[in-house]
């Protein structure tokens, strides 16, 4: 017979007023009475007066913040680098195209987890000695920077493919019309191809932006204390595994739903009059 589990939300929802924010439990030590929550009745955890609710709530807030910071910073790299690589895959110069294709194939064919390890453990060793030492010793929050660069460059390979698909979906006649009126290749991209193709690829760009949020959890393997890492830590401290991972699940869903809503709004906003776009009601 399956054991009935007593859900205990108090660890994150209850905040005792007398609790000092500085009274956070040192990582590595077991929170007082934490184990008593296992299978225990709801409320018992707090009845003991243990000042445990507060650090966990703060840990979650901190985890969510880092998830958002890492994902958004990575997205800046993804969007700019992905655009450049994607455009480079469509230009006439074969050498430029080959370099861009190599980038895409390299980054999208290696598991993200392995890439995380490569950036964190291998790349600093490959840098010139001074730069490597700086990364290892002086760069503040090295795991966070590494995660941002890794996620950004991994997702750039996917965004590049979307940008390329967007550009290639535009009929050749549009380019010819632009060139025929005397625009340069650069101007054709700037004024004709890109404004239309970015509108077309808003839905896949949205999924990829959500993908960055979700994949940021992989950064826990190199020590980034984002939402999943914090949840796991809280689970280890309190053994309230079900609750904390439920909370984490809901937070990821809320964040990604916000992304979807914002992008739908953007899509409707930039919709070309007379055409149909998703999200435009």
């Amino acid at each position: 017979m399956a054991m009935k589990y007593n859900w205990d939300w108090s660890i994150i929802l209850c905040r005792s007023p007398e609790e000092e924010p500085t009274a956070a439990v040192e990582p590595g030590t077991l929170a007082p009475d934490a184990t008593s929550a296992v299978g225990g009745g709801a409320g018992q955890f707090f009845d003991t007066g243990a000042s445990c609710a507060q650090p966990y709530f703060d840990w979650i807030v901190s985890g969510v913040s880092w998830t958002i910071i890492v994902a958004c910073a990575a997205w800046v790299i993804t969007f700019s680098l992905g655009s450049i690589i994607g455009i480079a895959r469509t230009v006439d110069q074969p050498v430029v195209r080959a370099v861009a294709t190599a980038y895409v194939e390299f980054f999208r064919n290696i598991p993200l987890l392995l890439q995380m390890f490569l950036w964190f453990f291998v790349v600093p060793e490959l840098l010139p000695e001074d730069a490597g030492r700086w990364v290892k010793r002086e760069l503040p929050l090295p795991e966070y920077w590494t995660a941002i660069v890794c996620l950004g460059m991994y997702h750039a390979s996917r965004t590049a493919e979307q940008v390329r698909a967007g550009i290639e979906s535009i009929p050749r006649g549009q380019t010819q019309a632009g060139l025929a009126m005397g625009l340069t290749q650069f101007q054709v991209y700037r004024h004709v191809l890109l404004p239309v193709s970015y509108r077309i690829i808003i839905p896949p760009l949205t999924s990829d932006f959500m993908g960055i949020f979700k994949n940021s959890s992989v950064a826990l393997t190199i020590g980034v204390m984002e939402l999943t890492a914090q949840s796991r830590q809280i689970a280890e401290y309190t053994f309230n595994i079900f609750e904390i991972f439920t909370v984490a699940t809901l937070i990821y869903m809320v964040v990604t739903l916000i992304v979807v809503t914002v992008m739908r709004f953007v899509e409707a906003k930039v919709r070309i009059p007379g055409t149909i776009a998703m999200g435009a009601d």
């Binding site: 009929p171 006649g173 549009q174 010819q176 019309a177 632009g178 025929a180 009126m181 004024h191 004709v192 404004p195 239309v196 509108r199 070309i272 055409t275």
Partner: peptide
């Protein structure tokens, strides 16, 4: 040289 195309090729945006 002005050029006019079969499919107009106006820029949709």
């Amino acid at each position: 040289i002005g050029m006019v195309f079969q499919n107009f090729e106006l820029f949709p945006h």
